[in-house]
Design a protein around this nucleic acid. Structure first.
Length: 114
DNA sequence: ACATGTTCCTTAC
DNA sequence: GTAAGGAACATGT
């Protein structure tokens, strides 16, 4: 222990910073985060979140797909890991239905698009 | 189906 | 130790 693999690149720093900014009871999308950090690829954001060196510190579970889908979690797209993500969001006040966000008003636009 | 950006791994010298 | 290439990915339109 002297050198945790916390090699966070500038891009990841932006992603974590943006995601960490999402308030509780709110959710955001990969595309929205990507756009906020100036990246035209939501997939890149997913890659950064997938590494997630800052575990619960970064509310990666508050980031969902642009189609209000759940996205992924822990490297798996389907399974109990996803169920856990739903539980966390529901506990924060975010309601889901049929694997999708029930209310789109829960989306957080980083205060960019009023 | 294709496009976009980043990360990770393997191989080579 | 450093360099280069290719493959994979928690997406989006």
């Amino acid at each position: 222990m002297k050198r945790p693999s916390f090699r966070v690149s500038a891009f990841q720093d932006k992603v974590y910073r943006a995601v960490s900014k999402i308030p509780r009871g709110r959710v955001s999308t990969y595309a929205l985060v990507a756009r906020h950090i100036g990246c035209g690829s939501a997939r890149a954001v997913g890659q950064a979140l997938r590494r997630n060196p800052f575990a619960p510190r970064v509310p990666c579970h508050r980031v969902i797909a642009s189609n209000l889908g759940i996205g992924g979690f822990n490297g798996h797209r389907t399974g109990r890991d996803i169920a856990r993500k739903f539980s966390m969001l529901e506990e924060e006040g975010v309601r889901f239905a049929a694997g999708r966000l029930a209310e789109r008003d829960r989306l957080y636009g980083f205060g960019e698009t009023p």
